[in-house]
């Protein structure tokens, strides 16, 4: 080790060894969005959400959500599956379906799965061993995080005295945290994440080929992430809707990482269940015996 060139090489190796190959930017932005954080509101470090993806149903937000979704999802219409005119300026097809479902209380909750797919340089796809599972109710939600089959952590978010109490279990350390958030989650209405994603359809670059996902006929769209931020052109987002119910079935965010040994990372949300049979205690925080409370 005698030259500046050696330092350069070592630094590059260090970056490869130390840093994750997948950007956390989306996760951070998601967390900021779900929490409704603003740069003008100084919060203690411990009073923010600890998880990035969520759908969360606040009672007060329900009506607003219905209106919001109608507006948000309204301008789109999927034509028959012949690939014809799929985008118009007047249809409220998607939004109306979800609005109706909410008003009739057909949709009482949502569950879905989150995974990361790694596209290797040989084109093979590998799904990450970390799997998130979301359980969403009208005014509360729960997120379970698995490492393979092993439950790694669980978070509950439950309303309490005008605020929200976040209870988190960490199974590795046998510890738990309890945090109180004042007020609701601000602009994190029940469909906060879907909101953003579905809104992208308005700017879609192309309609994807019809596809059957888990036995469901789906209609999909793709958009370059450069259309909504300072992102490279080749970052792609995709969303597939159930052609019949017009509810989202699968969402993907693909992020090529050509400077690494991987071609791309794709964050996937799928396995949506819009009418899940949730046990009554699904949103009741339970601390296992022997777990120690820690501050965060």
């Amino acid at each position: 080790m005698t030259t500046h060139d050696d330092i350069a090489k070592r630094m590059q190796r260090l970056a490869d060894e130390v840093c994750p190959h997948e950007s956390i930017a989306d996760a951070v932005v998601d967390r900021l969005s779900e929490r409704g954080n603003t740069p003008n509101r100084t919060l203690p470090y411990g009073s923010r959400l600890a998880t990035w993806p969520s759908l969360q149903w606040a009672p007060v937000a329900l009506a607003a959500t219905v209106v919001f979704l109608a507006v948000l999802l309204g301008p789109f219409r999927i034509s028959s599956q012949d690939g014809g005119d799929w985008l118009t300026s007047t249809s409220t097809a998607y939004g109306q379906v979800l609005t109706d479902a909410l008003e009739k209380a057909v949709v009482k909750g949502v569950t879905f799965r989150e995974t990361t797919v790694i596209v290797m340089s040989d084109g093979k796809h590998h799904t990450s061993s970390t799997v998130g599972k979301q359980f969403i109710a009208r005014d509360r939600y729960r997120r379970d995080q698995y490492e393979g089959e092993r439950l790694h952590s669980r978070q509950w978010y439950v309303p309490n005295n005008g605020g929200m109490v976040q209870t988190g279990l960490a199974y590795d350390t046998k510890t738990y945290t309890v945090l109180r958030h004042e007020g609701s989650f601000g602009d994190t209405d029940p469909i906060a994440r879907l909101k953003f994603f579905v809104n992208l359809v308005d700017k879609a670059d192309k309609r994807l080929a019809n596809r059957k996902i888990d036995g469901v006929d789906c209609i999909g769209f793709e958009i370059s992430a450069s259309k909504y931020g300072d992102n490279p052109e080749d970052w792609k987002d995709r969303i597939w809707f159930d052609a019949e119910t017009k509810l989202p079935v699968r969402m993907e965010r693909e992020r090529p990482r050509k400077e690494t040994q991987f071609e791309a990372f794709i964050r996937v949300q799928d396995d949506f269940n819009w009418q899940p049979e949730l046990p009554e205690d699904a949103f009741l925080p339970k601390i296992p015996e022997g777990f120690e409370q820690v501050e965060r």
């Binding site: 931020g229 300072d230 992102n231």
Partner: peptide, 29 residues
């Protein structure tokens, strides 16, 4: 990006995250 972030443009803040995340990661590690 900071100016946009102060206007609550979270996507702009995402740009800052992408720019500095490895550096922060290395610092934390």
């Amino acid at each position: 990006l900071i100016a946009a972030s102060l206007e609550q443009d979270r996507v702009a803040f995402g740009g800052l995250v992408r720019r500095y995340e490895k550096m922060v990661f290395a610092t934390v590690v």
